[in-house]
Computed example of a mutant assay.
Amino acid sequence: MADYQERPATTTIIEKRGGGGTMVAVLLLVVVVAIAAFFLIGSESRKDSAVESAATQVGQAASDVGDAAKDAAGTVKEQPAN
C-alpha cells in the first residue's frame, strides 16, 4: 500500500487591497455630472427667458405699429378731399 504523509498545516493570508480609489472616482464622476446638469438647466432657463423677453418686445412693437396705423387712418379720414 501507498504511504501517505501528512502535510504540515499552513495558514494562507489574503489581503484585500484597493477599492478606495474606485470610490473616489465614482464620487468625482457624480460631482461632475451634477455640475454639468446645473449649468445645462441654467442655460435652458436663460434661453427661455430671452425668448420670452424677445416675444414680448415683438408683441409690443406690433401693438405700437397697429396703433400708429389706426392714428394714420383716422388722420386720412379727417382731411377734406380736394
Score class of each variant (00 low, 15 high):
M1K: 13
A2W: 04
A2C: 08
A2S: 11
Y4R: 07
Y4G: 08
Y4F: 01
Y4D: 10
Y4A: 04
Y4L: 01
Q5V: 15
Q5H: 13
E6L: 15
E6D: 15
E6I: 14
E6V: 14
R7V: 09
R7W: 05
P8E: 07
P8K: 03
T11W: 01
T11V: 10
T12C: 06
I13G: 01
I14R: 10
I14T: 08
I14M: 04
E15G: 11
K16F: 10
K16W: 07
R17L: 07
R17E: 08
R17Q: 07
G19E: 12
G19R: 05
G20D: 11
G21K: 07
G21H: 00
G21S: 05
T22I: 09
T22M: 00
V24N: 02
V24Q: 10
A25I: 00
A25H: 10
V26H: 01
V26A: 15
L27D: 00
L27R: 13
L27V: 13
L29M: 06
L29R: 07
V30R: 11
V30C: 05
V30G: 01
V30T: 13
V31W: 05
V32W: 00
V32G: 00
V33Q: 00
V33K: 00
A34M: 11
A34R: 10
A34I: 04
I35F: 03
I35T: 11
I35C: 06
I35A: 05
A36H: 03
A36L: 08
A36M: 01
A36T: 11
A36S: 08
A37F: 04
A37Y: 13
F38L: 14
F38Y: 13
F38R: 12
F38G: 14
I41N: 05
I41W: 02
G42T: 13
S43Y: 12
S43K: 01
E44H: 10
E44W: 10
E44A: 13
R46M: 01
K47S: 09
K47P: 03
D48T: 05
D48P: 10
D48M: 06
S49I: 07
A50D: 07
A50R: 08
A50K: 04
E52N: 14
S53K: 12
S53W: 09
S53E: 10
S53Y: 06
A54L: 09
A54M: 02
A55C: 00
Q57F: 11
V58F: 02
V58M: 00
V58S: 03
G59V: 09
G59K: 02
Q60P: 02
Q60F: 05
A61N: 00
A61E: 01
A62P: 02
S63N: 07
S63C: 07
V65M: 02
V65Q: 08
V65S: 02
V65H: 04
G66H: 09
G66L: 05
G66Q: 03
D67Y: 00
A68V: 11
A68H: 04
A69Y: 14
A69N: 14
K70C: 14
K70T: 15
K70A: 15
D71C: 09
D71L: 09
D71W: 04
A73M: 05
G74M: 13
T75Y: 15
V76H: 15
V76Q: 12
V76G: 12
E78M: 02
E78P: 13
E78D: 14
P80Q: 06
A81N: 11
A81K: 01
A81W: 03
A81S: 04
N82M: 12
N82V: 15
N82P: 15
